[in-house]
Simulated scan of single mutants.
Amino acid sequence: MIKLKYNSGQIILLALLLLSFLCFNSLNHTPSNTVIKTDKPLTLNPNIARIISLGAPKLVSSYLWMLTMLQSDIDHTKEDRSWMFYRFKAISSLDPYFFENYLYGGLYLSIIKNDLRGAEDIYNEGLKFYPSSLDLLWNAGFNLCFELKECPKAIPYFTKLINLDTDMRFKIASSILSKIHIKEENKKLGFMILYTSYQKMPDGQLKERVEKNLYELKKEIDYECFKGNETSCEDFDFFGKRYNFSK
């Protein structure tokens, strides 16, 4: 929950800013350069927002955030970009370190508004300022792989997430990354990624499930090696038992 504390001077300034915002929107009817055309409430162009912020960009960004939440809807966007996307972009321009704007803004665009490219843009913008955020990395990778169906593009996000996630908050990330590599015909790399995470896992159902997956994956890799008459094939399965392959 974001707590906002302003003194009387800031409140007066905010009131003036709101009046400027309303006047600007009422007087300007040109969508190309000043007001961005959207399917819902008008949104200031980020450059204009900075100009009228009068040296208090964080104050304006807080107002825009609250206004956006109040006006938010659950309708899927009917255009290339949702009106909320432009709001989140304006907020980012005013306050690049407004973390919730990227985290919840991206989620809202991806899950609620179905503005998947807009969500991708917002997540990437957030990762410029919070490159080690596990939540942003996970959300960005999830949006690419499961919403946009572009799993190979999600590899860098999941890879970095796994390397940073020492407490294994996102245990499933390694399994997802492994499957992406397997689907891209890089089964050995997929096995190594999954095995690295398996070694860190505490005993339990998840580890047992991953263990079975590792066994099947290793068996498949070794069998393909055997069928291809390669010389460096392994003779033992994941549990140390000798294979009995026959051509």
Rank of each mutant, 00 (worst) to 15 (best):
A49F: 15
Y104D: 00
F88M: 03
L148K: 11
N163S: 09
P46C: 08
L189D: 05
K219R: 14
T231P: 06
I2R: 07
A56Q: 13
I51F: 11
L14V: 09
R209I: 06
N124M: 11
L70D: 03
S32H: 08
D115C: 12
K153H: 09
P202K: 15
K227I: 12
K171G: 03
D95P: 14
L16W: 08
L59S: 05
M201N: 02
C145Q: 10
K183M: 04
Y223T: 01
S93H: 13
Y243D: 02
F85N: 10
D73Y: 13
K40H: 12
Y223I: 02
A90Q: 14
A154S: 15
K187S: 04
S72R: 15
D222M: 13
I36A: 00
T43A: 01
L59H: 14
K78N: 11
L144K: 14
L19F: 14
I74Y: 15
A90K: 10
L42V: 10
C23G: 09
R87T: 04
T43Y: 05
G190N: 08
L27C: 11
L42G: 04
K207Y: 04
S20M: 14
E185R: 15
G106F: 12
R242S: 02
C145T: 12
T196E: 09
K58M: 03
K188E: 06
I48W: 07
K179Y: 08
F21W: 07
F85A: 04
N101E: 05
N25H: 11
D165W: 00
H29C: 01
R242I: 03
P31E: 02
I162V: 08
P31T: 04
E211M: 10
L4T: 09
K207R: 11
L161E: 02
S133G: 06
S197I: 08
D165A: 00
L14S: 04
S53Q: 06
K40Y: 13
L177W: 10
F24R: 10
S20I: 12
I193T: 03
F146E: 11
E79R: 15
C225R: 08
Y86C: 02
I172A: 03
E147I: 01
L44T: 08
C233N: 07
Y123Q: 08
K89W: 07
D165V: 00
L17C: 03
F191H: 06
K5S: 01
S62N: 14
S53D: 06
K227P: 04
K241E: 05
T77Q: 07
H76T: 05
S246T: 14
I182E: 06
L136S: 05
L127D: 02
E185Q: 15
P41L: 08
E147W: 05
N186G: 02
V60Q: 06
Y195R: 09
I180E: 01
P131N: 13
A154R: 14
L19M: 11
